[in-house]
Design a protein around this nucleic acid. Structure first.
Lengths: 137, 137
DNA sequence: TTCATTGCAAAAGTTTTGCACGTGC
DNA sequence: GCACGTGCAAAACTTTTGCAATGAA
């Protein structure tokens, strides 16, 4: 996504458009690999050596709260980030750790009267095709 | 669950029945609050002051691998544990952090040819009824 | 007996915090 | 200008690791 476009969608939501936030969002938007904070930090640092890790954490948190990114907590360890905010499922391979997107209808929970639901996530885990092939040989 | 019963289901799966593993499982089975490792460690320690934290981590990991417990990674930070291994959804309140169970049909993902799926999780987040009431007043 | 499990301390790693400084609006 | 974001270092946490000692089968 172009920088001007990012600034534009940030301003629509009254989200302060700092260079750090723009760089973080641009990276996650352009790399659909569900990177975690460290990967984002290290990648963003290459073009912007002055950015601090704290700021990347702050930016990611704010971007999630404002709905620009989705936090993926599938591995119980690091948090991964996804710029695809359309509803979809996430699959994690327990062999290689890779996270894949997949299509799945939004699940409809029962007995949640009085609950306000702001986000739904569907996580699968298992073995991905690549690792399945490697394990066969 | 009675200790003898726990030993029995452990042995069925050739899962070594150490006092530590029994105590950890009994605690999680009896407290359906989705505790995390620290809460489990501190609670188990009251009756068994000699147990170490490492062992609690080892036990939880083994219990998950053998299918006695389910790891709940809904908060991206700590891992919570659930002894209810029947399929169900988890709701986390972003205000109080409480995790609730709810009924939901197993989601059916598409386009996962070649993937081996070993676990499915449905996570919701939002505001629980208690916190909704508190926020109204 | 034997090998998996335990326990301790220390390490590794992620995320948070406090506070002074800088900057977008 | 002012509120909010940034940056640094240090702290707080959870989880892992290495290795000797212990105990379940």
């Amino acid at each position: 996504m172009r920088t001007e476009q990012i600034i534009s969608i940030f301003k629509e939501k009254h989200f302060r458009a700092t260079p750090q936030r723009i760089a973080v969002y641009k990276y996650v938007y352009g790399h659909r690999t569900h990177p975690d904070a460290s990967q984002i930090y290290e990648s963003v640092l290459k073009s912007n050596p002055s950015f601090s890790k704290t700021t990347v954490y702050n930016a990611l948190k704010s971007l999630c709260e404002s709905g620009f990114l989705i936090p993926v907590t599938i591995d119980g360890d690091k948090i991964h980030y996804d710029a695809n905010i359309n509803f979809h499922g996430h699959f994690i391979c327990s062999e290689c750790g890779e996270i894949y997107d997949f299509d799945v209808p939004e699940p409809v929970g029962k007995g949640l009267n009085g609950f306000t639901v702001t986000r739904k996530d569907v996580y699968y885990s298992g073995i991905c095709p690549d690792c399945n092939n490697k394990l066969k040989n």
